[in-house]
């Protein structure tokens, strides 16, 4: 399958700062791809190169088989640095932004009205942006990125400032886009959302890809020795456990490679612990993120 987005060995420096240092990844049609990384890792610079806003010093970016600036009308973008015209009406802004993407005015207006209805803002179509709540503005910003019905959406922190209800709504919207065959590049710090939505990810740290591939496989790799135990009595001292956390009787235990989960179970039973649940688990993406970023492990791109 031909990738929708192909990034090959791109580099970008600003003065002495090497912001992006040989980043490569591919995104395939109809998938939600997570582009992750700590602050200052080079994500935004990578995204800007993906959008044709910045030109890489070296390497290549292809979107829909062409240079980004040649397909900008087929791509939607929700930047991290974003806002709207506070004194303009919501519908007018969405129509204008779709027109800038080459859509005819009437088409743009109709589509904007439909999208506003979809996110429950039909009644606010003629309100000025400054009259909307922050959450409403966030939704309008997301709509601005997709109002021209793009084939590829690059969304940087789309969940910022959303309450749980709206967060769910936006997630549904993203899944609808995915179902409609759109390709989505999602950048966020909310790892639980990445786990819920993304099939593949790339983790960038210090300008380099440090983790790349299918999320499930990555989690499997990292979760080989993680066990969740729910116990009604406290756990005894367990020298075989490398690290553990406890919350409301639920223990999260990380074992070194030489200790198996079966050995742990035996030890707990022998120690007379009242076990209510025992599960060999996946390492949360957040933990993988922290571990990788802190340099505890590195996974070669697959």
């Amino acid at each position: 399958m031909q990738p929708t987005v192909r990034v090959r060995e791109i580099r970008k420096s600003f003065g002495t700062l090497q912001a992006v240092d040989g980043v490569s990844f591919e995104v395939y049609p109809g998938e939600i791809f997570g582009l992750l990384g700590p602050n200052g890792a080079g994500k935004t610079t990578t995204i800007r190169m993906l959008m044709g806003i910045l030109h890489p010093d070296a390497g290549q970016v292809e979107v829909l088989g062409q240079a980004p600036i040649q397909v900008r009308e087929r791509v939607g973008y929700l930047p991290e640095e974003r806002g709207l015209y506070p004194n303009l009406k919501v519908l007018d802004i969405l129509t204008y932004l779709a027109q800038l993407k080459g859509r005819p005015k009437a088409w743009a207006r109709e589509r904007a009205e439909a999208l506003l209805a979809r996110v429950g803002l039909a009644e606010r179509a003629h309100a000025k942006v400054k009259e909307l709540s922050r959450g409403m503005q966030q939704k309008v910003q997301l709509l601005a990125a997709i109002v021209h019905d793009p084939e590829v959406c690059v969304l940087d922190e789309p969940f910022q400032g959303l309450d749980p209800v709206n967060l769910q709504l936006v997630k549904e919207l993203l899944l609808e886009l995915k179902a409609a065959g759109k390709t989505i590049v999602l950048s966020t710090h909310q790892m639980n959302q990445v786990e819920a939505l993304c099939s593949r990810i790339a983790l960038i740290n210090r300008g380099r890809v440090v983790l790349y591939g299918e999320l499930a496989r990555i989690q499997q790799t990292y979760a080989a020795n993680v066990v969740y135990v729910h116990a009604s009595s406290p756990l005894p001292e367990l020298p075989m456990v490398r690290r553990y956390r406890e919350h409301n009787g639920m223990y999260y235990l990380e074992l070194p490679p030489e200790v198996s989960s079966q050995q742990l179970l035996r030890t707990l039973v022998q120690a007379g612990v009242e076990i209510q649940a025992f599960q060999v688990g996946r390492l949360p993406l957040e933990d993988i993120f922290v571990r990788v970023v802190q340099g505890e492990g590195q996974h070669a791109p697959s």
């Binding site: 800007r48 900008r72 009308e73 930047p79 974003r82 806002g83 709207l84 601005a144």
Partner: peptide, 17 residues
């Protein structure tokens, strides 16, 4: 100043040159 202050710059230049 409007687009700069309202942080619309990136949205616009992802659409037009």
């Amino acid at each position: 100043a409007e687009e700069k202050e309202n942080r619309l710059v990136e949205i616009i230049i992802s659409s037009v040159t």
